[in-house]
């Protein structure tokens, strides 16, 4: 049972890495921001599975923290975006 959880966690990490590779390469800032969301969810799932595999309940707190960090960084990104006016670099993103 435990090695199955580890296998599932590994699978989820590789899938998340695949998604990260695509998201981090795009030039649109919003898409790069989605990498944080992807890492938060995928990382939390992997940490939960590893916690279940090694039967250590503390890993649930780690997953909680990861989710919180993803949410807070997304909120910080959006509040930063809406305050300043669109400058030249953002115009390029508009066309993209």
């Amino acid at each position: 049972m435990a090695d199955l959880f580890t296998g599932a966690a590994l699978f989820i990490l590789t899938v998340t890495a695949l998604g990260l590779f695509k998201v981090l390469r795009s030039e649109i800032a919003v898409e790069r921001m989605m990498a944080v969301q992807l890492l938060g969810t995928g990382g939390a799932a992997a940490v939960l599975l590893l916690g279940a595999a090694t039967s250590s309940p503390a890993m649930t707190d780690v997953a909680l923290l990861l989710m919180l960090l993803a949410a807070v960084s997304c909120a910080a990104f959006t509040s930063g975006q809406s305050s300043h006016t669109a400058d030249a670099s953002e115009q390029a993103e508009d066309e993209a």
Binding site: Q37, G40, T41, M67, C74, F77
Partner: peptide, 9 residues
């Protein structure tokens, strides 16, 4: 958190 973050983005 995912719902609100997606709405914000």
């Amino acid at each position: 958190s995912a719902a609100t973050a997606s709405q914000l983005i």
